[in-house]
């Protein structure tokens, strides 16, 4: 009897798995139920550091991500921007990612700017993209203008009131990186190491485990990991967004996958006993 059950459980069709995963995502998305959000120390540190920036100072916020990971990264950018603009920080943004980065920055910044009544060139600037990120990051340390003669919209930097006296990393009180790839390594290994700029990062869950090493060595002030990290930041900023809404589904799918792992192991060991 047991072995027959094991046999059946060992051969579940992949489409059944796909269906159950879909259901586990769809139901909590439609029926949102409140779940507690426990803030991790790395998120708290990052939030506190940004809170500590004097009002009206300048921050560099990067959009170093592809559209493939928008679900994890965009809520981070949105939450940080809300925090920044609530403190009236001036935000300069750029992207080292070719496919989509500057367009995503353009959309997110201008949509939120309308809500907060922020004016381009006075409250925020989008520098856009330049190729070969290592050269870009190093070059910005000496002269932003030589790498970016104009912003994303072809406006010379000197024509933007906010950028008048800005030409190196020294102008920024903090660098907030939002990324889905290894560019964080270059921000840390080049910009933090050579120019001493303080920085923190919001990254996708896949990237997060590596960057704990940089947090401990104080090369990064703090770290947001994946949609959960974004939900924690939304909680701290006090504005629930897409990441918080996703936590129910995240919980249920994890549980479903764990159940499948247990089923797979049960089937394997029960089947082995028979042999």
């Amino acid at each position: 009897m047991l072995t027959r059950i094991a046999d059946v459980l060992a051969r579940i069709d992949r489409r059944i798995i796909y269906l159950l995963i879909s259901i586990s995502v769809i139901i909590p998305t439609l029926v949102i139920f409140p779940l507690p959000v426990q803030v991790s120390p790395e998120t708290q540190k990052l939030y506190d550091r940004v809170e500590a920036i004097p009002d009206s100072s300048m921050i560099l916020l990067t959009f170093d991500y592809y559209p493939s990971t928008l679900a994890e990264t965009e809520p981070m950018s949105v939450a940080v921007l809300k925090q920044c603009w609530r403190k009236n920080l001036k935000v300069v943004t750029l992207s080292t990612v070719g496919l989509g980065g500057p367009s995503i920055a353009d959309r997110v910044m201008s949509t939120l700017a309308d809500k907060f009544g922020k004016v381009y060139g006075i409250d925020y600037v989008n520098l856009g993209y330049k190729a070969n990120y290592q050269a870009v990051l190093l070059g910005l340390g000496k002269s932003i203008r030589s790498i970016y003669p104009t912003d994303y919209y072809d406006t010379p930097l000197d024509s933007l009131p906010m950028m008048k006296n800005v030409d190196t990393y020294d102008a920024f009180d903090f660098i907030f990186i939002v990324s889905d790839n290894g560019i964080v390594d270059n921000w840390v290994g080049l910009v933090n190491a050579q120019f001493g700029s303080e920085m923190g990062a919001g990254v996708t869950a896949v990237m997060a485990p590596k960057f704990y090493a940089y947090v401990r060595s104080n090369q990064l002030v703090g770290l947001l990991g994946g949609m959960k990290g974004a939900a924690e930041y939304e909680y701290l900023v006090g504005e629930k967004g897409a990441a918080t809404a996703g936590m129910g589904a995240q919980s249920l799918v994890h549980l479903t996958i764990i159940i499948f792992i247990l089923i797979g192991n049960f089937a394997y060991f029960a089947g082995r006993k028979k042999k």
């Binding site: 995963i21 998305t29 679900a71 994890e72 994890h254």
Partner: peptide, 18 residues
């Protein structure tokens, strides 16, 4: 963490559709 990340991307698309 990888599972978490991949699942988040799916949640993003389901949020879009539904």
């Amino acid at each position: 963490y990888t599972v978490m990340g991949r699942v988040s991307l799916l949640i993003g698309r389901v949020q879009f559709l539904f």
